[in-house]
Amino acid sequence: MAGVTNLAELAERGVLSGVVARERTLAVLPAFESLLPGAVLQRGSVVACEGSAAASLALALAAGPSQEGAWVAVAGFPGVGVAAAAELGVVPARLVMVAEPIADPTTRFNDATWADLLAAMIDGFDVLLLGPGTVRIRTGTARRLVARAQARGAVIITVGANAAFAGDLRFDVTQSSWQGLGEGCGVAHGRRARVQLTGRRVPRLRNAELWLPAADGQVKAMVESVVALCPTG
């Protein structure tokens, strides 16, 4: 097996051939392929989703790996809408959530509990969604968890700005408009969003126009420019 040995040697030298590199990545939905460098999510990266569409973006990013068989864990995001997640493409059979008992302030998770919990989640799940409930985690703990995720190959996606988990990639929605509502008529049947990607590994910021979501709940690249108008009055 001389070929295999050579590839392994190449990997050690830091030059990753296409074959070896592909195993350290996770697939994404087609709509995001034009945005992400290499059209994939690198395992071990931290992605921040910010702006008014942060939740939908985060779920849509998790949908790509979920459909390939990855398990998704959600923490600190008690209001996550499973119906929306399912429409975006996340497979509910492989979704697990950790809900902090917020009713009683004394039973909330302390930093040590978060550390143990997130460590177990990083070990077992390929994609983690961290919602606003995790902003209280200390920076030191977060840094150790990110290192663990990098070694393990898990992807951390934060919903909203999270100072402790500094992201390699940052998705932001610069413009968004919901279509279909008028003055007391119509129904919201899609959101046009301009999604911007910045980050350490992105040399120039990238933009894409997406339906986030479209009428059927999925994320789609925007191709048509005709938008149905609703009669006013």
Partner: peptide, 11 residues
């Protein structure tokens, strides 16, 4: 309600 469904649901 028709799709798309809301991403944040307040129980």
């Amino acid at each position: 309600l028709p799709s798309p469904s809301p991403a944040i649901v307040h129980s």
